[in-house]
Design a protein around this nucleic acid. Sequence first.
DNA 1: ACAATAGGGGAAAAATTTATCCCTATGCAA
DNA 2: TTGCATAGGGATAAATTTTTCCCCTATTGT
Lengths: 127, 127
Amino acid sequence: MYERKTTPNLNCGLDLIGEVLYGKWKMRLLWFINEGYQRPSELQRKIPDASRRVLNIQLKELEEHELVSKRIHPVLPPKVEYSLTDFGLSLIPIIGALGQWGDKNDHKLREVITKALHHPIICENID
Amino acid sequence: MYERKTTPNLNCGLDLIGEVLYGKWKMRLLWFINEGYQRPSELQRKIPDASRRVLNIQLKELEEHELVSKRIHPVLPPKVEYSLTDFGLSLIPIIGALGQWGDKNDHKLREVITKALHHPIICENID
DNA sequence: ACAATAGGGGAAAAATTTATCCCTATGCAA
DNA sequence: TTGCATAGGGATAAATTTTTCCCCTATTGT
């Protein structure tokens, strides 16, 4: 596993939440687990853009941060189920708000994202 | 500037908001600009953990994504002021909610973050 | 002359994150 | 027997982000 070389900044609430939520797929993982997709393979099917590997890693981090708990059923083929802890559950409304904002501003967002992809020359306001 | 090699995924609201908000210091920049710290040097003083360079870069991205607008006063020494657009302003409640959650769970978060830093062996639930 | 302030950006290094590929194991179905 | 599904991890490569260092403009104050 990757060994951190710098210590994280933990000065404010945003730093703190960032430590546990900053990861490309973490919010989606929490969201889908909350929706009932609890098995790794189900989550991978819900998030096909992520590699299998990174989902495993981020699930493990979420578990270490006690946002999800993992239940391993000792059967073959293996069966694993993740579920939200109360702590993780308390984040769902916030993740919902983020997703809602994104959905509500879908059109505008696609526009500015596409524009920025071609980094146009922005016309500055000069007074 | 860094030239992207892969195209972003824009499948859902979370992808979209991630495109404009995913950056270590972006939410803090929006927050402080909203609080009235509008000049680059003020922002740098409010966020001393970030390098000057990266704040400039992320401010430029926020501007390209139309979350902030930049006003350059053609005076010497130069004076620049950022302000939130209506679009950026509409994110403030969400950023506030994130920060609040972080503050409310300050103690617990420090605990799990510190624990994970030493990656302990997690005791799995087995049934 | 020199330092400090204000704003900005190039180049390269370092840190971090994400992707790719390969390997373990077992049971079930064609 | 081969192939697929299940779950996961090591090693390594690639992509991306952030930091560090240095340079530039121009003014004010010492």
